[in-house]
């Protein structure tokens, strides 16, 4: 119990963020109509591309003076992240475009 409390106080900010984000995530989409399931999944998929920030930090602090496999993999991670973000938002937009036309 004491260990648990120490852990809690050490990471209380992170724990608050997690708890609130879970709640917000659930609350925000709990009444979504079925037609929007796929676009919403696609939009959420694009947001999960925030990992791109990790890629930017990784390559941003990489040592460029020598060639290394790590650098190549870091750049690959960055390209993957960008594909997720740009591709994700573009696909979602195209789906919703179609959706709008159907309504008219």
């Amino acid at each position: 119990m004491e260990q648990f409390l120490t852990f809690f106080f050490e990471y209380k900010e992170a724990i608050f963020i997690i708890a609130l984000s879970i709640f917000v995530g659930i609350e925000v989409i709990s009444n979504v109509p079925a037609v929007l399931h796929t676009p919403l999944m696609s939009g959420a998929n694009a947001i999960s591309g925030v990992i791109i920030i990790g890629g930017i930090i990784l390559v941003g602090h990489a040592d460029l003076s020598k060639f290394s496999l790590d650098l190549v993999l870091g750049i690959l991670a960055l390209i993957f992240g960008t594909l997720n973000v740009v591709g994700g938002f573009a696909v979602t937009d195209r789906m919703l475009e179609m959706f709008k036309k159907k309504k008219k």
């Binding site: 997690i18 984000s21 995530g25 659930i26 990992i51």
Partner: peptide
């Protein structure tokens, strides 16, 4: 997974965005 990487860098945008998608994706 993105949120976990966010913890490595202690990066709020990654943690928040990642957990948000994790929770919303699960409910969806």
């Amino acid at each position: 997974a993105a949120a976990m990487a966010g913890f490595i860098y202690n990066n709020q945008a990654m943690i928040l965005g990642g957990i948000l998608v994790g929770a919303a994706g699960m409910i969806l």
